[in-house]
Design a binder for these strands. Structure first.
Length: 559
RNA sequence: GCGCCCGUAGCUCAGUAGGAUAGAGCAACGGUUUCCUAAACCGUGGGCCGGGGGUUCGAAUCCCUCCGGGCGCACCA
């Protein structure tokens, strides 16, 4: 149910009919209609909707755009359509359409009846997978992972509301080179803790968390691993550490409101799948050997250079595993595959899409949503995130400090394309400057109105006893209008993979509510008006709540 | 050097498919207590949309070029 889109379809038909009628009457000669739009003008004075068809047709039919628009408008006027208040030609040839408010007054019962389903678009029968965070299980979740978590989960929610069947997936990098290094680090720490004076690997994971993990292993196994062969010992160490790390990531992400449908292990690809995919690329002629390594001809697909897929030492690269992984995704039959990546990975896009194309899949079904980096601020000062100095802030610490709601809201507030300056002080502040509080407060305030009503013995009438057309104040109409936009806004956010639009939307909606609240009273001597306003408050609250749900932010009833 | 992203009000940022007079929040300034939460609201000022060229009826949006910032260009991931 998408009121705005329905209107657009309705108006589109009116325009097309008018144009065709004009052609039949010999007034306009055209071959085919241009790809015109019915859009919501920025200026209120330009109507509820505006159409640019005349400007687009002008060249083909060799008529002045305004003249053309006049003809179409006259034709529409002749039809005397009830829902149209006024249709006029303006500016360079726009057709401005003014509707009477009847469509707006249909919104309250629509939203009231749909409740927490308001905003959902019709099911489109398509399956989409969103893979996000997929952090290395060798350390803590950092701010980049946190932003990825918020963006990925919110986008998944948006796609769900937009009509897709959505799967959330976490790719566990539990194999490959960095796991070898991780294992070296674990083993070295283990041996050190058992009194051996050996140097720590130069490129090892020097963090305290590795030491802590090994201490827990010590508590469990004592020195017994010393007795084992090195491979056996290493296997136990790394299995224990990975299991612990994955459990930690899962726990932390759940605490962040993020739950996955699938945790996919990279290791499972190292049991034949990688070799298979390399073989199949080889057969298709996309692989060559040079300097004892195998290379994928990614330059055929617009990459800057070819990419090693199998090292000279016989071990596959990360890229090889990633190809096998993406082949697996496509084998699972998704109609759309979305990866959320940090912007530092942008160089991989061309070759990843190239590999998919080489395997015979449609690379356009894969979208990589890149997100820019996060900078943490405390007050006016940047918080340096350096693993070396150990001053990195982890996601758990962030949730601890500012709470899940603020963290989630802040991470999706900005376009993924935009660097995010995350101000810890602002996120904690309970004031109008803090956007998440501003929105939550709107919700709480509406709840408060209903509590007040209840205390006064006032109850909202049944829906069919309420007359929405009593809502005629500017602030009331603006609220209705904004609420009506919600499903369309979700559709746009899904199409453009733009989770920040929902944060913005709910911020705007909250602003309109606060504005209404300060101008007009809900609890009123006029019963009929009171009922209409209670209904308006009810659906405003529903819409705020539904939007916050998408963002993974709670909607408190009191603050 | 090559590639990707960014450059919009003092600050932080919006601005789907090109649309009419480019918006919001914060900051600044001026207001709002008989009233459902002053954690709020109303108003004012503030802009060569980084510069230049092009495409067209129309460009913040598309193309070219230059400048500035970030990131990438490993047999790391």
């Amino acid at each position: 149910m998408n009121p705005v889109q329905e209107l657009q379809t309705f108006l589109q038909k009116i325009i097309v009919d008018a144009a065709e009628a004009s052609r039949e009457q010999g007034l306009i000669a055209y071959q085919s209609l241009p790809d015109f739009v019915i859009e919501v003008p920025r200026e209120k004075g330009h109507g509820d909707f505006a159409c640019n068809i005349a400007m687009l047709m002008a060249r083909e039919v060799r008529m002045a755009p305004r003249k053309l628009a006049e003809l179409i408008v006259d034709m529409i006027a002749a039809n005397n359509i009830e829902r149209l208040e006024k249709v006029e030609v303006a500016g360079p040839g726009f057709i401005n359409i003014f509707l009477n408010n009847s469509w707006l007054y249909a919104i309250p019962s629509l939203v009231y009846n749909l409740g927490n389903r308001y905003g959902y678009n019709d099911r489109c029968g398509q399956r989409v997978q969103v893979e996000f965070v997929s952090a290395n299980p060798t350390g803590n979740l950092h701010m980049g992972n946190a932003r990825g978590g918020a963006i990925g989960d919110t986008l998944a929610n948006i796609l769900d509301r937009a009509g897709y069947e959505v799967e959330r997936e976490f790719y566990i990098n539990d194999a490959g080179n960095q796991i070898e290094i991780f294992t070296d680090s674990l083993e070295t720490r283990y041996l050190q803790l058992n009194g051996q004076d050996i140097p720590f690997p130069e490129n090892g994971y020097a963090g305290q968390d590795v030491v802590d993990t090994v201490k827990r292993i010590m508590a469990h196994y004592g020195a017994s691993l010393l007795e084992l062969s090195a491979p056996e010992r290493r296997r136990i160490l790394v299995d224990y550490a990975l299991q612990e790390k994955v459990a930690y990531m899962r726990r932390t992400l759940e605490n962040f409101g993020v739950e996955y449908d699938v945790w996919f292990s990279e290791k499972s690809l190292h049991e034949g799948k990688i070799e298979q995919v390399i073989d199949s690329l080889k057969e298709k002629g996309y692989i060559y050997e040079e300097d004892d390594a195998l290379w994928f001809k990614s330059t055929l697909f617009g990459d800057e250079k070819d990419e090693v897929i199998m090292r000279a030492n016989g071990l596959p690269t990360y890229f090889a595993a990633d190809i096998a992984y993406h082949q697996n995704k496509f084998e699972r039959g998704f109609d759309w595959v979305i990866n959320i990546w940090g912007a530092d990975h942008h160089g991989h896009i061309a070759r990843m899409k190239g590999a998919i194309q080489a395997l015979g899949y449609d690379p356009d079904k894969l979208d990589i949503l890149l997100m820019q980096l996060v900078r943490l601020y405390r007050g006016g000062n940047i918080v340096r995130m350096s693993k070396r100095t150990g001053t990195t802030v982890s996601l758990d610490e962030l949730i601890e400090e500012v709470g899940r709601d603020a963290a989630r809201f802040f991470f999706v507030m900005r376009s993924p394309d935009s660097h995010l300056d995350f101000d810890l002080e602002l996120a904690k502040q309970q004031s109008q400057e803090n956007p998440v509080y501003y929105v939550q407060y709107a919700h709480a305030r509406i709840c408060s109105i209903f509590r007040q009503a209840e205390a006064a013995g006032v109850k909202m009438a049944a829906l069919d006893r309420i007359e929405p057309s009593l809502l005629q104040e500017e602030e009331e109409l603006a609220l209705l209008r904004k609420i009506a936009d919600f499903p369309e806004e979700i559709g746009i956010a899904a199409r453009t993979m733009a989770p920040h639009r929902i944060a913005r939307y709910v911020l705007d909606l909250a602003g309109l509510f606060h504005s209404f609240y300060n101008h007009h009273r809900v609890l009123h001597q006029d019963q009929a008006l009171q009922n209409a306003r209670l209904l308006l408050m009810h659906i405003t609250r529903t819409t705020i709540k539904n939007a916050l749900d998408i963002l993974g932010v709670s909607a408190p009833e009191r603050m």
